[in-house]
Simulated assay, not measured.
Amino acid sequence: MTGLEHRLEAVRALGRTVTARAAELEELALAALGFPRRVIRADIDLAARRLAVFGDLLPALRGREALGSVALALPGNAILSNPVAAAGSAYLAGNQVRVRFPRRRKEWADVVVELLRDAFGTAIEPHDETGAQFLGDAFADPDVGAVLVFGADDWMLPYEDAARLSGTKVLFEGPGKDPFLVLRGANLAAAAGALAASGTYNSGRACTAPERVYVDERLHDRFTEELAEAAEALPTGEPGDERTWIGPLLAADATRVRRQVELAVAGGARVLTGGSPGTPTVLVDVDQEMEVMRAETFGPVLPVLAVADAAQAVAFAEDSPYGLGATVYGGPDWVPARLARSHGAVHRGETWLDHRDRLPLAPYGGRRRSGWVWEWRGDRFTRWDGPRSAVAELSSLEI
């Protein structure tokens, strides 16, 4: 068995372990994270399915070799599928893998690190220093070939000089403010149900959740009625309840959501349903310049803006510093093709939840301030963005 085959089998074995321990992991995550049980359960299932199809990544490694050591700064809202996909990709490529979770997630981080260490052995190196110290040490260590960071764009941008001077490759995955377009020809009931579910997934605490909605004005009233009905049907309650879709928000998240909704209402928006943190909220009569349409909300809020036609919807969708993903229901074929220039992933007639269920290891990555790669190519330091394969980017071409 080659080294690559051995690593692939270790990844698959981790998938079997996740499946076997799914009920136990669900209870541990519920206690540590406080996310809704059904969200945790779905994410653990996704983790197992991702690990089971890691063999599909082997073609991306053809003609490539390990970087040596890579550093992963994982996000605080991650459960299991994101950490095992990131660490598994780095490990499959043959690297030593430094792993850090935010300190506020230490209880759950310890569980995930134990899983990774049991599967991948000493190739996994857990770290618990501050984020700044973790990155500083990675940039200073010539053995670290790349860092993969999930976080805030404002926090990451100042590290460009460190990346340039050290020569360390940086893969950054940042915030989203994803648009959801409902255009002529859309099935309004299907679009409304899809938006309500995908926009409030994990109580809206997903960077890929749609956070701003553009609807053809001829469809607006009928669509918002459908959307309000779909949102009101989403169960709210305690995280441990099997039915709960939207659970309580952390204090900081609740404060941000409340402020954005109050500012929107003060500016002329109307609350169609909801209105308080922890409830599915639909806003109408919003303006493109409102904070709720510009800044990441990270809560279950769906602001809807009426547009004249597909061209105006696209113009508004592109009018953002962020470009993680976009969703389109109805409309002409040119719309998703155009949005692909400004957004990392464009989903037509389905949501990001549907997409990841179909393609659990699809390339991922945003554009603009939603994500980028810094790296030296020859004698030129470059920045590029768009969907990318982590297993390929965490390896290098053989010389």
Rank of each mutant, 00 (worst) to 15 (best):
T2D: 15
V11D: 10
V11H: 12
R12A: 14
L14I: 11
R16F: 09
T17S: 15
V18C: 07
T19K: 12
T19E: 15
G34R: 13
I40P: 11
D43K: 10
D45Q: 14
R50I: 09
L61E: 08
L67K: 05
A71E: 07
A73K: 10
L74S: 05
G76S: 13
L80E: 12
V84A: 12
A86I: 11
A87W: 07
G88D: 06
Y91N: 02
L92R: 00
A93Y: 08
P102T: 06
P102E: 06
L115F: 02
L116C: 04
D118F: 06
D118V: 09
G121N: 07
A123D: 15
P126C: 13
T130M: 05
A132G: 09
Q133H: 08
Q133Y: 00
G136D: 07
A138K: 04
A140N: 02
P142T: 04
V144D: 03
A146S: 09
L148G: 07
L148S: 11
F150L: 10
G151Q: 07
M156N: 02
A162L: 13
G167K: 04
T168R: 12
T168Y: 00
E173Q: 09
G174H: 00
G176R: 07
D178Y: 00
R184V: 07
N187C: 02
L188M: 00
L188D: 03
A190C: 02
A192M: 04
A192E: 02
G193P: 08
A194V: 00
A196Q: 07
A196D: 11
G199C: 08
G199F: 08
N202Q: 13
N202F: 12
R205M: 14
R205T: 11
C207V: 05
A209S: 15
E211D: 12
L219Q: 05
H220I: 01
R222A: 15
E226D: 12
L227W: 02
A233E: 14
G237W: 02
E242P: 15
W245T: 14
G247F: 08
R258D: 15
V261R: 11
L263F: 06
A266F: 00
R270S: 14
V271P: 01
G275N: 04
V282A: 06
D285A: 10
V286T: 12
D287Y: 11
Q288K: 04
Q288G: 09
M293R: 01
F298M: 14
P300G: 09
V301W: 03
L302N: 11
P303V: 10
L305R: 13
A310S: 13
A311M: 05
A311E: 15
Q312N: 01
A313I: 05
V314T: 06
D319G: 00
G325R: 00
T327D: 06
T327K: 10
V328A: 01
G330V: 02
D333T: 05
A340V: 00
S342Y: 01
G344Y: 01
R348A: 13
E350W: 03
W352A: 06
R356M: 11
D357V: 12
L359H: 14
L361P: 08
L361I: 07
L361F: 05
G365R: 00
R367G: 01
S370R: 06
G371L: 02
W374H: 11
W374S: 02
E375V: 11
R383N: 01
G386H: 02
A390Q: 05
E393G: 06
L397I: 14
E398W: 10
E398K: 12
